[in-house]
Nucleic acid binder design. Structure first.
Lengths: 225, 225
DNA sequence: AATTATTATAATGTATACAAAGTACAAGTT
DNA sequence: AACTTGTACTTTGTATACATTATAATAATT
């Protein structure tokens, strides 16, 4: 009874958090374009709230690096420069590799089973050629590794960094030419982690992220023209 | 003339940022203790501002992980659990090691000179036995390595993580028994980076952070009693 | 015609107001 | 004595108001 109450409590979300999620989604999906100004009154009207929750959401986006503040002019969606993207990808690679290493040391038998299921589900998802389904399965696979790494801060940082390049990654899963490569890479990652072979896992994740990086950069170059 | 104006423009800081820095400082120095509630009206009165800048500052602290929000109850200073500290230190170690590796690849001759100066300054600072001066010199040394790594996102993350353990690190520099060890470690880091010996640099930074970690944990255990 | 002033408009920065939820404590009930 | 119930009070969540600064468009001047 008390538990049920506790559960339903979770449903309450302050407007600032709703706005935060909405704006972040908008930025990541590209609905809000880099350089676009985020004007409080406009957003408030559009979302049907007052300026206060908007402002508080923007403060969080600011710290996350998704918007930049110009004093007395307001917020605008952060530009993704090539250097910036490079920096994010570089750090993400390091952290993903580190997560794989930790996962080798800490993964439980239960998690091994989950990882196997996720790997299988990913291969099936790829076959459906539904990019959304594949992307979700891909996320699930990596989430299990992160969970196995057992470091909440690491999880938070990797997820945040992944978010910053989200708009591009989706496209990379779409590209059918890379499907067999993706499956192969996941298999190598799975095998090495299950064997607790740290060096192999680090290497497998490293090349996996490298390839993703290449795909993203191709994408970016294509977009520029 | 325009430049001067530009410069003076920088002096303007929105109250929210002043409050943000003030509160963060308060948390990191321990003036605001873990578990302590941050009540908006009290803080507003104490700092002589309205609730609005306070709230916006809290939103940023929330995302930084320095305060936690309890819905409809407000913010309180985040507890540092042992697990949490462990997680932060673990990630910080990985990123610091990574920064050293990048620094080996990218450090310019100019930066090498700066690093030498910083290393010398650190040794002199240690001799003065003034903990504040030593700590500052220590920060300077590590900042140069980060700068040489040439990755802004990495710099941001490392600084943020360092901040989370700041309240303990200060104490570790104070402990005179560790002085010779610190000097020795800095020398090894300096030497390996200048030689662009990635493996050695990674190892040197690794043990440096490990030792720091031990010191912090001793500190924490001592505080508990 | 180009450039500077002027002025109206709109946006941010900050403070305040008000409603809803949470807290604590006293009074009443079993 | 333990447990509700009620009530005053505090605090957050949200909206709005006001002041200051930026923006843009028009008029005035060279």
């Amino acid at each position: 009874m008390k538990d049920m109450l506790q559960e339903n409590m979770d449903e309450y979300l302050p407007l600032r958090d709703v706005v935060f999620k909405t704006l972040r989604q908008g930025i990541l999906t590209g609905e809000l374009k880099p350089g676009e100004r985020l004007m409080e009154i406009h957003l408030a009207n559009r979302l049907g709230v007052s300026r206060t929750p908007i402002r508080e959401a923007i403060r969080k986006l600011e710290l996350e690096g998704l918007v930049i503040m110009i004093p007395r002019r307001g917020a605008e969606v952060a530009q993704i420069t090539e250097k910036n993207l490079q920096d994010v990808l570089e750090v993400r690679r390091a952290l993903d590799v580190f997560a794989a290493k930790l996962a080798c040391q800490r993964m439980t038998e239960e998690q091994k089973k989950e990882l196997k299921e996720a790997a299988d589900a990913f291969e099936k998802a790829i076959e459906t050629k539904d990019a959304t389904v594949s992307a979700r399965a891909d996320v699930r696979f990596h989430d299990i590794i992160l969970e196995a790494a057992g470091n909440d801060r690491l999880t938070q940082l990797v997820n945040n960094l992944a978010e910053q390049v989200y708009r591009y990654r989706f496209e990379s899963v779409k590209d059918e030419r890379s499907h067999s490569r993706l499956i192969e890479e996941h298999r190598r990652i799975y095998d090495s982690i299950v064997k607790r072979d740290e060096k192999a896992a680090e290497e497998a994740v490293g090349t996996h992220v490298d390839n993703q990086e290449k795909a993203i950069k191709d994408q970016l170059r294509a977009m520029k023209q």
